[in-house]
Nucleic acid binder design. Sequence first.
DNA 1: TTGGGGATCTTCT
DNA 2: GAAGATCCCCAAC
Length: 189
Amino acid sequence: MPRRLKPADFLRDAPEMARLLIGAVLLVDGVGGRIVETEAYDREDPASHSHSGPTPRNQAMFGPPGRAYVYRSYGIHWCLNFVCREEGHGAGVLIRAIEPLAGVATMIERRGLHEPRLLCSGPGRVGQALAIVHALNGHRLDQRPFAVHAADRDYDVVVGPRIGITKAADVPWRFGMAGSKFLSRGFPK
DNA sequence: TTGGGGATCTTCT
DNA sequence: GAAGATCCCCAAC
């Protein structure tokens, strides 16, 4: 079993961290799988929640690295980020898609779907399938219910522009596992 | 296969 | 008052 990531492993800038997390395994209470899609956000980035400085909503992004930043998306979904870089900077990685490996029956029940490809292919879907709730905001990623294991080998990574944003829409800070069938959508050639 | 609308909440203008 | 790091369902092509 590959080693678990600890807070010191998150002392990197957001794009580097986002790429490194492709192939890592995320479990929440034993439910989860392999991360196949991420996006990087940074304080200098106009599309980031942290761009305008700390607020009650985004304070976890300015806390210690190696913790979760959980936010409500479109008033409905809970989305999960990993805080990275140094404390106080406001950098993070959005977990956009996972290949389901563990606790698949639980995910099927939570999602109300049985199609494996649709269980975790999108940030809101990941939140629902892994039971991400706001109580996990600011929670350490190396302590229960979280467990993050480093990638077991090198994976080919594809890069492209981020999804669903209007500012800095051309910045290529979206990362995906090449050839994965569990991406939220394809990458442009 | 593509496109529009609804659900629902926080932040900022 | 509007927009947003989204998803789902239905209608129309």
